[in-house]
């Protein structure tokens, strides 16, 4: 990389002569090298799904989760450096707890997303810190219903393809159950089998069946969705 050794990539508060901030570009690189994460906001809920690339056969299945719970009703999926994802999730939990303490009610997704946005931006301003190497999708069902900021969102390596697939769906007419099936299909579709190593599918949802809680998709539905995703992949190749 041309930026290394020039001295312009040592800090997020230094511009290179052609007006770039390399630390921010590195952060984006970290995201692009990471497995895809998607979020779907549908009629009655929100679904999060992640293509978790497994870097080593020594890892226990289910290790290094990339979907985390912020509050009872708020979920968070990240693409990029796993450790940065945990830092942001911990901050989001603190903000949610602080909101509850101050307002005596569950936080809306908008307030949490706002605060996390400010928090992340602060790490682009000082030479003492580096920007977070992650993109984050936050999803919730709050007092105004399902919330994601978008109907569908995708970050990470396969985000372009995932976005075109999401655009084909009538997201506002799907149920949460149907959305789980679609989410699994999209993750399997965007995974590049030839280039990449193994991956683990990770899915969570918030909907009428979860009582408004952000929880992992139950095993039977997860298995059904994964089977259908593999099926769709095979029939798509023909």
């Amino acid at each position: 990389m041309t930026s290394i050794g020039t001295g312009y990539d040592l800090s997020a508060s230094t511009y290179s002569p052609d007006g770039r901030i390399f630390q921010v570009e590195y952060a984006n690189k970290a995201v692009e090298n990471s497995g895809t994460a998607i979020g779907l906001k549908v009629k009655d809920g929100v679904v999060l799904a992640v293509e978790k690339l497994v870097h080593s056969k020594l890892l226990v299945p289910g290790a290094n989760r990339r979907i985390q719970t912020v509050d009872r009703h708020i979920g968070l999926a990240t693409a990029g450096l796993p450790a940065d994802g945990r830092t942001v999730a911990n901050r989001a939990r603190d903000e949610a707890a602080g909101y509850r303490d101050f307002y005596r009610s569950p936080p809306t997704l908008k307030t949490i997303a706002d605060r996390i946005g400010h928090f992340v931006q602060m790490y682009t301003l000082y030479s003492s810190v580096r920007p977070f190497g992650i993109s984050t999708i936050l999803g919730a069902v709050d007092k105004d219903g399902p919330a994601l900021g978008y109907h569908g969102a995708a970050v990470g390596k396969g985000r372009q393809l995932a976005k075109t697939e999401l655009e084909k769906l009538k997201l506002s007419e799907l149920t949460a159950r149907e959305a789980v099936i679609e989410a699994a299909r999209i993750i399997y579709l965007v995974h590049e089998d030839a280039k990449e190593k193994e991956f683990e599918l990770e899915m969570s949802w918030i909907g009428p069946e979860t009582n408004g809680l952000h929880v992992a998709v139950p095993k039977d539905l997860f298995d059904e969705a994964e089977a259908k995703a593999k099926e769709a992949l095979v029939s798509g190749l023909e």
């Binding site: 989760r65 912020v70 509050d71 939990r93 509850r100 809680l213």
Partner: peptide, 14 residues
Amino acid sequence: GILDELMIDEFAAG
């Protein structure tokens, strides 16, 4: 209030 926060922390640990 304290117990509510405790239970949320435990839930978020997942």
